[in-house]
Design a protein around this nucleic acid. Sequence first.
DNA 1: ACCTGAACACCGTTCAAGT
DNA 2: ACCTGAACACCGTTCAAGT
Lengths: 215, 215
Amino acid sequence: MSTIANPDSRHNARTLRADAQRNYDRLIRAAEALFTERGADTSLEDIARRAAVGIGTLYRHFPTRDDLIAQVMCQSTAAIVARGDTLLRSATPAAALAGWLRELVGYVTTYRGLTAALATSYIGSGTQLCSGCGQIEKAGRALLARAQAAGEIRRDADVREVILTAHSAAWISEQTKDPAAIDRLLGILFDGLRTIRPTQRKRSSPRRRSGRRRR
Amino acid sequence: MSTIANPDSRHNARTLRADAQRNYDRLIRAAEALFTERGADTSLEDIARRAAVGIGTLYRHFPTRDDLIAQVMCQSTAAIVARGDTLLRSATPAAALAGWLRELVGYVTTYRGLTAALATSYIGSGTQLCSGCGQIEKAGRALLARAQAAGEIRRDADVREVILTAHSAAWISEQTKDPAAIDRLLGILFDGLRTIRPTQRKRSSPRRRSGRRRR
DNA sequence: ACCTGAACACCGTTCAAGT
DNA sequence: ACCTGAACACCGTTCAAGT
């Protein structure tokens, strides 16, 4: 029955002194605003300044930039995980996985520069970011397993690889700024993940029949 | 009949004063060494220091970091373009494309951090890097077109997307440090690029036959 | 024509001093 | 228990002064 001042803004809910809680909230809000405006690599000093807080306070609450990002993303993370649970009950396993991956791309591109930060720490040493990644990976694993059990997706596909591939598609779209590109890339990726493959055509000579165009 | 002192180290071959040429070469060598040791985002000051040259001299020869990278990569760029020409004469168009993409991955992972630098400027405003990218794109375009003409690769695949996808696979492998991952990712990508797709299975209910495992 | 390095601006991170 | 901001280290970039 401890007093959790603000469960929404405090992921790891332990009681904070009132002024500390206030500073924490201001930092989250400032970071959110500046991430949106200038990307996930904004100067930490600027964030502290916008929060009207000493830089030391920022470091006290968020030892690393990843910790800050993780807390700012906290609600979005919960949302995408929940979305995975929902899609798990849809009638079309492969489509569910595809849809979820599409949403994952949205998630990792919330702020410019976020993909790089996430991907680095997805592998890297256990910051807060990875706890979020863990939940996401679990959600993806369930969707993937179901699609595989339904015989629609390659058995040799690994969750981490699938997630990282979606991630990289997001990274590309971040560079490209062409919103259509991401769909085509995900299309290619997803076709690559399907079970049924064309007949292996070993060392066929290049038949040149001026390939009839379709469409 | 102009005297080109060192065509290998000077891509854009115009005559330089002897000391300028010497500094230029030292900078290239120093950059090469430090890129290898510490990645493509090494401090420019360190590069100048290792070259025993003032920082201003570095900036004079290479206005941007990308210019420096482009010149350091110059020979590798020529090599991968030449490799494209060779593969264009192989008997198996799709395999040639696949093989070339594999080598492209090697190219963009020459130094740690290179993928990010290349991808950013592949889109970005025309630095020297892009001239290299242009040649590479041309090589890729020829290989892709041939594989498409042979009916092996999707007609709707775009060179830039294909290259960027290989690029992103490289980016992942850079994060992962798992050399096996890259092969599987490229495998998935390449299967996604193939022409022949499985029969479109519209709204089939998820058949749960506890999928027999193979291996 | 080219080189040099001091100077400036900026960022990340720590820590002694304060309440 | 928590906050503050000066201090330190480091990097990118420019430019006046030199040869």
